[in-house]
Design a binder for these strands. Structure first.
Length: 288
DNA sequence: ACTCAGGTATTAC
DNA sequence: GTAATACCTGAG
């Protein structure tokens, strides 16, 4: 573990707010100076934007450049993606203009699974609070700039946690789901390493759906936001349903719009970039 | 007191 | 297969 620093310059498609507040992650917090600090695996990172530079610093167990390039998806050409998506229609163009600094993070698969199970029928402040308490209680402490941070607990670290203990953390009815899913993963009923190696997204999705607390929406979030990185999925939550109905379907009652209907349009219009399109639309509809 | 929030699991047609 | 319903919790 050592303090490290890394800078990149003149990168488009990199805005702190767009990245950290577009709804893909839960462990990044804004600091007084406008930078963001977060926990990435066993590393504490702080990201600051200054002029046309992005400055990453933190305490890392591995090379910070390597960590950052992978986590922030730096080797993907977002300019090209945005250009392609913008051609589709004015709606996409508008939403991309709004969220032009978005990048989809390569988050740890296990952490993403648990985080999005917690997200079900929940609100962001509460989701963040639960994840923080979970990490504080079962993760490892790391001190950075005098502050205490906690790594996200590994499956092993949650091995002996009871349903009652989860309930005490405020998980509510999701307690049993965390318990069961952790058990399934520990016992390799679902092998996460094998999932990463499987290029067949449909098969991986079927596997994820076997986990307790993982339904269609959570499975798609995991596929898109974790290091599985499948951009062809299209997670449909209340906001996406709303924006898709507003823009393309125009049913008087958005709740009557079927999931299949939305999926069909997403597939036709956005194809293998559906996940990105979803994120721009979601962020725009929610924040703008 | 009551509604709502990044849905899922269960039960009943 | 598709529709209705319950579900922790805490903030507004």
């Amino acid at each position: 573990m050592q303090k490290q620093k890394y800078k990149i310059e003149n990168i488009d498609s990199f805005d702190l707010k767009d990245i950290f507040e577009c709804g893909q992650c839960f462990r990044w917090n804004k600091q007084e100076d406008g930078s963001y600090t977060g926990v990435v695996k066993n590393n504490i990172l702080n990201v600051k934007k200054q002029d046309n530079q992005i400055i990453f610093q933190g305490i890392c167990e591995d090379n910070i450049q390597k960590i950052v390039e992978n986590y922030f998806d730096l080797n993907r050409d977002y300019e090209k993606i945005k250009k392609d998506l913008s051609k589709i229609d004015d709606n996409m163009k508008t939403s991309i203009e709004y969220g032009k600094g978005i990048r989809i993070l390569n988050q740890d698969l296990w952490e993403t699974i648990i985080s999005f199970i917690i997200s079900a029928n929940n609100n962001i402040p509460r989701i963040k609070g639960i994840i923080e308490r979970l990490s504080q209680k079962y993760g490892k402490e790391i001190i950075y700039k005098g502050e205490k941070y906690y790594t996200f607990p590994t499956p092993e670290e949650l091995k002996n946690v009871t349903v009652e203990e989860y309930r005490k953390l405020g998980l509510g009815f999701r307690d049993i789901r965390l318990y069961e899913t952790t058990k399934m993963i520990l016992e390799k009923e679902i092998d996460l390493e094998k999932l990463k190696e499987n290029p067949n997204t449909k098969e991986v999705r079927e596997e994820l759906l076997k986990l307790s607390g993982v339904g269609p929406k959570v499975a798609d979030c995991i596929l898109l936001f974790s290091d599985l990185k499948r951009f062809e999925v299209f997670p449909i939550d209340v906001w996406v349903r709303r924006v898709m109905n507003d823009l393309y379907i125009k049913n008087e009652d958005e709740n009557k719009v079927s999931k299949k209907q939305i999926e069909k349009i997403a597939e036709e219009k956005f194809g293998n970039l559906a996940g990105l399109a979803q994120q721009y639309l979601f962020y725009w509809r929610r924040e703008a």
